[in-house]
């Protein structure tokens, strides 16, 4: 049997994290979650995940962006796919989706708008893991 894929969730909303965790764990993923970018870096050093689910707005509205840039600039982590969760589309009026994967602008692999529907989440996670 294939080794279970490890997913790291970085989100400061414990309820949303919990809900996603349940969905993903039900589908045999190993899920770890942290609440901020510092803990995320620590967790990454301790154990390398196969995928990162990242919330845009945590302590500051750009935390998610900062972390994703940091990771994609780092040779050790740049291969880990990032799925970004956002409610920013509404907040700023910017439509990020077309820019996903545009490394020069915003280095993430996929976007999802909150609230995340379980089947959509699973589908995106699966596609990203296959690509990696």
């Amino acid at each position: 049997m294939m080794e279970k894929a490890k997913i790291l969730i970085v989100d400061d909303d414990p309820d949303i994290t919990e809900a996603m965790k349940i969905v993903l764990e039900n589908h045999d993923y190993v899920v770890n979650s942290v609440e901020g970018i510092e803990q995320a870096m620590e967790s990454l050093k301790a154990e390398r995940p196969n995928l990162i689910i990242l919330d845009v707005m945590m302590k500051t509205p750009q935390d998610g962006f900062i972390l994703s840039r940091q990771l994609k600039d780092d040779d050790n982590y740049k291969d880990i796919p990032i799925l970004m969760l956002t409610a920013v589309q509404e907040k700023t009026g910017l439509d990020f989706a077309p820019a996903a994967g545009d490394e020069t602008w915003l280095p993430v692999d996929e976007f999802m708008d909150k609230p995340v529907k379980p089947d959509m989440l699973l589908k995106k996670v699966e596609t990203l893991l296959k690509k990696a």
Binding site: D13, I16, E18, A19, A87, E90, K114, P115, P118
Partner: peptide
């Protein structure tokens, strides 16, 4: 209005995610 609705949306998103799991009997 934008700030308030945005905050409400954050809570609603969490509520929806949780109830969804109960309602679809995942848990």
């Amino acid at each position: 209005v934008l700030r308030v609705t945005h905050d409400i949306k954050g809570h609603l998103a969490a509520i929806e995610s949780c109830i969804n799991l109960v309602y679809t009997e995942v848990v």
